[in-house]
Design a protein around this nucleic acid. Structure first.
Lengths: 161, 161
DNA sequence: TCGAAGATTCAGTATTGACTGAATGTTCAA
DNA sequence: TTGAACATTCAGTCAATACTGAATCTTCGA
């Protein structure tokens, strides 16, 4: 496959990843920037490179890289002797992303508690909806982190497989 | 606690739940409508009731209830002999909500596959980022559903606890 | 079939948020 | 300390989405 053809096909692929990441609440260009960083060569790209790949403006790119960095999804690096910064996907970021999303489960349990406290003197039937919510999220707050734990303790296969 | 005071406190509680649900991508009034349905008395409320509780317009309420129904979060009921419809939280909806969100995990795995296919002839190092993504989501696509399964098979405690 | 209660639609308006790029700030080699 | 390279900020513009409510449609008892 020629370089240009690969780049075109990757462009279509990047669109799909971008849509998926938008579902996580990322703005379009932030998602697109991240998606290009997933497949670009080399893995390190400057702001200028990313502007060309995504078509975003200087300002958008500054925002995009900052947001992705704050979400621990990409790292900023500066090779010694260079004036530019480069950005690359942060190793292990997918697990971190899952952890953050799973921590929301505990929020749900806590919020349900607050509601149950307020309804304490009301007839028990009125609390049934919140109780159902709390029971599930309590359970998941224990089970999901233990799955992540299992993943992190899992021996990784070598990359020649 | 007086009725009015309880209602005021529930109002503040509903605000919190609303914010949380907005994080799921629900528009404000949709989230607010859902949140009131979690704690209202009785659990069944008409569109008119919900308009008063949330302050939303007729049109917004029509949209909100339709969306929540399509997401299987609430049910529409009409008591025999009445002209009005009533809405109530759907029993078991929290598990369904989780299932939908977890099905996204499989999407990630599939998307990573597409990318890996495209990069097939490239040096192996270039695929490392997608490989890391795929491995994690493959694992979670198996583990998370089995947690849900465990929940559904779990004997439920009686409600007098 | 009629009409009143109730539900839905949708064109118009308001609001929010994304995006740009010129101005400004920062860094560092010389 | 200077200025060239690069990064960031933010006021202004544009686009997308939420929300309203009058008009329209549906339902069902009489």
């Amino acid at each position: 496959m020629k370089d240009q053809e690969l780049q075109n096909r990757l462009g279509a692929f990047v669109e799909r990843v971008t849509m998926q990441m938008e579902g996580f609440g990322l703005p379009h260009y932030v998602a697109k920037t991240f998606s290009w960083l997933l497949v670009c060569d080399p893995p390190e790209q400057s702001a200028e490179d990313l502007m060309e790949l995504t078509g975003a403006s200087k300002g958008s790119m500054s925002t995009a890289t900052r947001m992705l960095q704050q979400m621990h999804m990409i790292d900023k690096v500066r090779p010694s002797g260079e004036r530019k910064y480069y950005w690359r996907i942060r190793s292990g970021m997918w697990v971190d992303l899952l952890k953050i999303r799973l921590s929301i489960l505990e929020q749900f349990s806590k919020i349900a508690d607050e509601g149950l406290e307020l309804l304490g003197e009301e007839p028990a039937g009125r609390s049934a909806r919140l109780k159902e919510m709390k029971d599930l999220y309590d359970f998941m707050s224990i089970e999901f982190p233990s799955v992540l734990d299992k993943w992190e303790k899992k021996p990784k296969e070598s990359s020649d497989g």
